[in-house]
Amino acid sequence: MSAFSRLWYRAPLWRLCLYLIVPFVALTFVFPPAYLTRRLPRMAQIATAIHHRLGMQDTPADADQAGGGNPGDGVVTMMPMTDRLTKAIPFAGRILPLPAGVWHPIINVIEGPHGEVLENVLVRVQGHIVTGLIVASGTTQPVSAAANPAMDMECHDDRNYMSHIGASHPPVTECWLTRLVDPASISHMNVIASRLKEEGIVLPPVLLRANWINTTPAADDSLNAETVTIYLNPVNANETKILRSPDFWTKEALAQQPAANDFVKRMNTWMAGWAPVLHDGFNSDMLASSEEQRARLSLDPAAPRPGEANPLD
């Protein structure tokens, strides 16, 4: 009898530990800890595939209620924030152009009865301060045209700083708008804030929102849709850093706050140039503009200044 055989029969606790290795390894792939997914991004992808196969969610059912989302409608996947994304990324079978700077993924959400809607949340950081958030939502297959009126409603809201309607004859809609937003109202904000806090990253007290909404008709009274919402930090520059209350940024208060008014004007001008780039990405036609044009148009007024450290680098 070999030494291994003798140990096998004489050490039941050791034998039990060997048995437990298999289920614990399996559980590690189903519920990988955050430090492993940061070091091994492939592990997060494997966990996501397992969750999709088993019909599981990655977050508790109440994790997102205060953020305005409904996590019961989809699968929420935490992403490794060490990924560095620039220029453009594939998104919902199309292309999502990114504003200037380095963006990091926070979460992915798959929603709808058959996973028809994909949502990506990305963050941009300067120092330890958020300079931008992107929440992009797009259909991966046509959805009912009944969803169009709700998407179109904000284009006509009189609280917008500015809005531009390029097409509005249902089910076709294309518009963009800018406005002040309460950070607590951002979709999935509970999850976003928790992830940022883990990394020592601070959300600003004020965020301005630039929205681009686009829907195109498909067969059988359905449509393809994409909404790109870009949240910019307006209080990270010397001229606006004292304007840390949302009251300074309301549409009515801008006339009394020249620095805030200037930032909003620059955001409006930027979004007017960036919306056509988003339109090209929706059509997967990035040849409609040159790389030099896209680089110039991508410079939003909250873009990080050169030489500033990024804690996620």
Rank of each mutant, 00 (worst) to 15 (best):
A3C: 03
Y9E: 10
W14L: 14
R15T: 11
C17K: 07
L18S: 04
I21T: 13
V22R: 03
P23Y: 07
P23L: 09
Y35D: 12
Q45H: 08
Q45T: 14
H52W: 01
H52G: 05
R53Q: 11
Q57W: 04
A61T: 05
A63S: 15
V75S: 05
T82L: 06
R84I: 11
L85G: 03
I89F: 02
A92R: 12
P97T: 13
W103C: 08
W103G: 07
H104I: 02
H104K: 01
H114C: 00
L118Q: 12
N120F: 13
R124H: 08
G127I: 14
L133Y: 07
G138P: 12
T140H: 02
T140C: 02
A147W: 01
P149I: 15
M153V: 10
M162A: 13
M162H: 10
S163L: 05
A167F: 06
P170V: 15
T173V: 08
W176C: 05
P183H: 09
S194E: 04
E198M: 06
E199G: 01
P204E: 01
N214R: 13
T215K: 03
P217H: 06
A219E: 14
L223M: 14
N224M: 15
N224W: 14
T229W: 00
T229S: 04
Y231W: 13
P234H: 12
E239T: 08
D247P: 00
T250D: 05
P258I: 07
V264Q: 03
N268S: 14
A272T: 10
G273A: 15
W274G: 02
W274N: 01
A275D: 09
V277E: 00
A288F: 00
E291N: 08
E292I: 15
E308Q: 09
A309I: 08
N310Q: 01
L312N: 05
D313T: 14
